[in-house]
Amino acid sequence: MHTRDIDYRCGDAHLRGYLALNATIGKRPGVLVFHEGLGLGDFAMERARRLAGCGYVALAADMFGERRQAGSLDEAMSLIGGLRAEPETLRARARAALGVLAGLPEVDAGRCAAIGFCFGGTVALELARDGADLKAAASFHGVLSTTRPAAKGAVRASVLVLTGADDPLAPRDQVAAFEDEMRAAEVADWQVVSYGNALHGFANPAADGSIMRAALYNPQADRRSWAAMRGLFDEVLA
């Protein structure tokens, strides 16, 4: 497996992503991985390598710039809040990462997808709402609310939401509002999977409640959500 840092820009922001791919011949589907609220770190990079092991070219994108890492929950909330308050900047940075991935010689630009965890799940959904050329967008325990709902007919991706039934960051009313948004936008293919007894951060083994009490790893939900994503990718990226 080959891995390397990959630098790119969006406006004045210097972004440093992490690329993972296997040395096989021919163009392959590409998958973006959007990081959690603490920034691009080991977890997103490990998921990129796991995707590369499945035969995809995976780019773990940097949404904060300079591969910045938050040292506390307050700092993470500040970084996230700044981007959520400027959705055009958030979507532009996500599109910049997609442009880098789609432009790689190993990638079939017509077969790209995006996944994200926590804040990154929000980013993957925002990219889909923005009408990006994606075959699929999958959100793992992401916040589902948005200030810019998808316009009718705008979403081109198959949308998969993987959420914890007990996640306070994605309460029932937010899930219902998301489902209503998908219906109103006439999204052709969307699904919401809710995992019982699962909190926020269920896919990250490092989530132990120490940074956020509501963030706790759930190995069963982790396995099942990854399998659900793989099943969708086998269908739409083949």
Rank of each mutant, 00 (worst) to 15 (best):
G65I: 03
G81T: 09
N197A: 15
F117D: 10
C10E: 13
L125E: 11
A188D: 13
R230E: 15
D166M: 10
R28Y: 01
T3F: 02
S139Q: 10
A221S: 15
I25S: 11
Q69K: 05
I115T: 13
S225C: 14
L15C: 10
P205I: 07
F140T: 13
L169F: 05
L199F: 15
A124V: 03
V236R: 12
D62L: 02
S145F: 01
A124I: 01
D130T: 02
Q191C: 15
A138Q: 06
V161F: 05
A52G: 10
T24A: 14
R28F: 00
L90G: 04
R148N: 11
P29E: 09
L134M: 06
G65K: 02
Q69S: 03
S78V: 07
D12E: 07
E36D: 07
V161L: 14
D167C: 11
V175T: 12
A97Q: 11
A215W: 04
A188Y: 03
Y56N: 01
L101C: 11
D173N: 12
T147R: 12
V31D: 01
E75L: 01
S210F: 00
G30R: 00
L90K: 05
M182V: 11
G99N: 15
R224A: 15
I6H: 00
L104G: 09
A157C: 03
D173R: 08
A124C: 07
A58P: 00
A137P: 04
A207C: 08
G99Q: 09
A94W: 04
F117H: 15
A214T: 06
D234A: 14
V236H: 04
V57T: 04
V57C: 02
P205S: 12
S72H: 03
V143N: 05
P149S: 08
F34P: 01
Y195C: 14
R50T: 08
P29Q: 07
S139W: 07
V236G: 03
A128I: 05
P149I: 10
Y195E: 15
R16D: 01
G153R: 03
P87R: 06
Y18W: 12
A70R: 02
P29H: 08
E46C: 00
R129P: 08
H141S: 12
P219F: 13
R129M: 12
A94L: 07
I25V: 11
A94T: 05
I211D: 05
T146N: 09
R213I: 09
R213K: 14
G103A: 11
T163N: 05
R213D: 14
R95K: 15
A132M: 03
G131E: 05
A44F: 03
D222S: 15
V236Q: 11
L232R: 14
